[in-house]
Structures are given as C-alpha cells and as structure tokens.
Design a protein around this nucleic acid. Structure first.
Lengths: 168, 168
DNA sequence: CTTGGAATGTCAACAAGGCTGACATAATGT
DNA sequence: ACATTATGTCAGCCTTGTTGACATTCCAAG
C-alpha cells in the first residue's frame, strides 16, 4: 500500500506510469475534500463560506496586512474579497484601520470574536492534518510537503515561502 | 528545504508543532490551486468549469457508470450534476444510454470528442503531477500518497480505493 | 500649486455551480 | 395494486467568482 504497485523507486529518474499519476490526481481531489470538510461544517453553522475562512486565516497570519496584499495571496479580485471583508467587518470579526502613512490603504486585524472563530477553524483543520500525519508516519510528512511545494505555480510558491519563513 | 525546520522525525510519535501543521495547511491550499490551474485554463476556453471536468474524468474512468454512482463519487446533488451532464450531452461530449437490465438507469460514456477533451485535461494535469514528483524525488512520492489517503473521510476513502484497485 | 494619472477600495450587476423542495415518469419489486 | 427506486426537471436561494463604474487618496510632472 505504501508502494504504488510495482517497478519503480530506485533511480533518480522515476518510473511514473499514467496509471500512477491518475491515482495521485484522484487522491488529491478526494483528500482536498476531506481537508476542507471540518471547517466547512463550522462555517456553514455561522453562515460563512470558504472565502471567509481564507480571509480570516491570512489576516490572523499577518495582522495589519492590507487589502491589496491579501488580494495577491488569495488570487481573487478585490471586489470578491471586499464582499467577504464587508460581512466580516459588519459582523465584528475583522477590524479595518485606515493606513497612517498611506490613507488609501486599509489595515486588517481580527477582533476578539474573530480570533475565536479563527481558532475553531484552524483547530479543526490542524486536528485532521495531525491525524493524517500520524497515520502516515514521519517519513511521509516531508515527502508530502515536498510534492505540494513542487506542485505550486511559481508566483504562488513565492507567497508560500514568504509566509513560511515569516512565521517560523 | 526537505526537512521542515528542526527537531522531529525519528520516533513513532511525531513532534508536530502547530507551526508545522499550519505550514502544511497552507501548502495544501496553495498546491491545490496549482493542481487545478492548467485544466481550468483549458476548460474556460471552451466555456466549461471544474464541475464538467470532474464529470468527464470519472466517466472516462468508469465508462458506463450510472448517474447515481457518479453522484455518490462526486458528492453533489443530482440537480447539480444533472445541469452539468445536460450541457455535456447536448454538446455531444457525453452519451447517455438507457440500461439494458434496469431501464431506469442511464449509463454514461464519453463520445469521441469527449475523449479528446478528457485527454487534453488529464494530460495537462498529469504533466504537472509528473513534474512535481520528479522534483520531489522518489521517496517523496509514496509519502505524499500516504498522507493524502489518511486525510480523506472514511466514505470518500472507500470510493478512492475502489477506483484505485479497479484501475490497476 | 495644480492637475493628471496611478493605487486603493467600494458598490452594483451578472454567471457558475453548489443547495433544497416539489413533482413527473418509468421501471422494479413485493 | 402499490411502494420504492432511478432519473430528470423546474423554481428559487446562496456563495463566490467575474467586470464595470466610481470615489478617494497619493504622487509626480508641469
């Protein structure tokens, strides 16, 4: 079950059959569903969606970040993000402060209740990730991360690495 | 870069900090975007979306599958799936044949043009997966799959394994 | 200093693709 | 005969993506 079913694995040039790749593609699809399932449940109880989760996650991650910065991380249009931010702000989960240097900018922060929601979401998601890591074993973990990093777009990987180092 | 940054990895109980888990969560988010980016481009040129991709993928995977079966794999409502199938059928990419044993069932098949689209989509996605595997190295590949499998919901994993074995 | 762009953020309207609910039809099973 | 199953369809709602139009703020060139 660890090995995909046969010949490969020694050399530096992998013997990757279309069939193995197809299994990996399906695994990615099904796993992502599991990955989002727990937060989705919590969110839908409160009338929010994945877009809210993403905003809350990255605001928590980089408090004081600007709308523009969040935009480039999330890869959506500012109008799309704005709708989400508007509800989060009016619900009192996010605070938006006008920039001191540049008054065009808005700096975003989680409020106390915002942090509570963020905690609930990330706890649920971390629990699943932790349990997956435990079941897969220590060696699997680094392989997992390496493949994921290699799968990102170049631009995306830049964001990822900036976050990765900033938060260490 | 291979190692996540420190202490862990020998024992059976992993030393998983919240910080490491958070990085893995972000990696999953960013990687999934890369994973869908290439097919998304192809699809949007033809006026389709991810929902069409999923249908085409699993019909190709299990030709003659029924609507009900597809439903349980995709985890959406029949109304949702039906909207997608309707366009694929009327565009001549999918054929729906009444069942011989049970005439209530519709068995789904890709037409010639349907297979062409499927090939384009899966080629693009496989190319990215293959390149990610190559860059990550042989040892990473099995770890990747193990973690993904451990991340799925139990029900989902059933579908996944049935497909995995059926297609080997 | 003024003025024209560039950057930033907001509002409005539309589309895709989820969802629920209600209902029709046909075939099956009891 | 009747209940159940498999499928399809209509209507309406929600989230979340899109584009277009517009206000505000900043900055730099004249």
């Amino acid at each position: 079950m660890a090995d995909s079913g046969g010949p490969p694995s020694g050399e530096s040039l992998l013997f990757l059959t279309d069939d193995q790749l197809r299994k990996a593609i399906e695994a990615m699809f099904f796993a992502y569903r599991g990955f989002t399932a727990d937060p989705d449940r919590i969110l839908s109880e409160k009338g929010y969606g994945r877009a809210h989760h993403r905003a809350v996650h990255f605001i928590n991650r980089s408090p004081g970040t600007t709308v523009n910065n969040l935009l480039s991380i999330l890869g959506v249009t500012k109008q799309s993000l704005n709708r989400v931010l508007r509800t989060l702000i009016s619900d009192g989960l996010v605070e938006s402060r006008v920039g001191k240097q540049d008054k065009r900018e808005r700096h975003l922060f989680l409020t106390e209740p915002g942090e509570v929601l963020e905690r609930a979401l990330s706890d649920a998601q971390r629990d699943r990730m932790r349990s997956a890591f435990r079941r897969a074993g220590p060696d699997a973990v680094s392989g997992f991360r390496q493949v994921l990093e290699a799968m990102m777009d170049a631009d995306t990987a830049r964001h990822y690495k900036r976050l990765k180092e900033g938060g260490a």
